[in-house]
């Protein structure tokens, strides 16, 4: 698993949401390799190939990151900040996933350079619809960034 090419990185602590998100992706026939990390610290290790993911030095970066903003250890906004602050990872599209509609989150994540934003609605149908729209866009239409 460490060596395999990961195209979608899902950063999500809530196991229910992980499962539902994977279902939504699957429903949309997005079968690209997906890796799930459960907190901000792990997300950073994966992205920057440190700690438990030190062996991913030469692996390709994910083509899109679905990032929950409310995370244990290191929160989503901090993860976003570090991705966008690093020249090697800056080009990776990040789609913020959150159940929050709090404006400060939205404004802050846009300020940090988030590429898109999905509010996780209670209605799963709406969520599926949103994932389809945005996920497709970033995965299929965007060319992988030159590393």
């Amino acid at each position: 698993m460490a060596e395999k090419s990961v195209e979608i990185l899902l950063v999500e602590d809530n196991p229910n949401d992980v499962e539902l998100t994977l279902l939504a992706l699957k429903d949309n026939n997005l079968t690209n390799p997906i890796h799930v990390v459960r907190d901000g610290a792990e997300a950073l290790e994966f992205i920057f190939a440190t700690g438990a993911y030190a062996d991913r030095q030469n692996a390709e970066k994910p083509r899109v990151i679905l990032l929950d903003l409310k995370l244990p250890k290191v929160d989503g906004l901090e993860v976003l900040r570090q991705i966008k602050a690093n020249p090697h990872t800056r080009a990776i599209p990040v789609v913020a996933l959150t159940s929050s509609r709090e404006e400060c989150d939205i404004v802050e994540s846009y300020n940090l350079g988030v590429n898109s934003y999905i509010t996780k609605p209670v209605d799963f149908d709406q969520f599926t619809h949103a994932v389809r729209t945005l996920g497709l866009y970033w995965l299929l239409l965007n060319q992988p960034p030159v590393m």
């Binding site: 809530n14 229910n16 949401d17 539902l20 959150t98 159940s99 509609r101 209670v122 799963f124």
Partner: peptide, 25 residues
């Protein structure tokens, strides 16, 4: 209050989403 609202919006919705999502499945 803000922290409360944030919690409500985030944490109350998450289980509902799970309820609705898995019911749909």
């Amino acid at each position: 209050l803000e922290a409360f609202s944030y919690t409500v919006s985030h944490d109350l919705r998450a289980p509902l989403r799970a309820i609705d999502g898995f019911s749909r499945v």
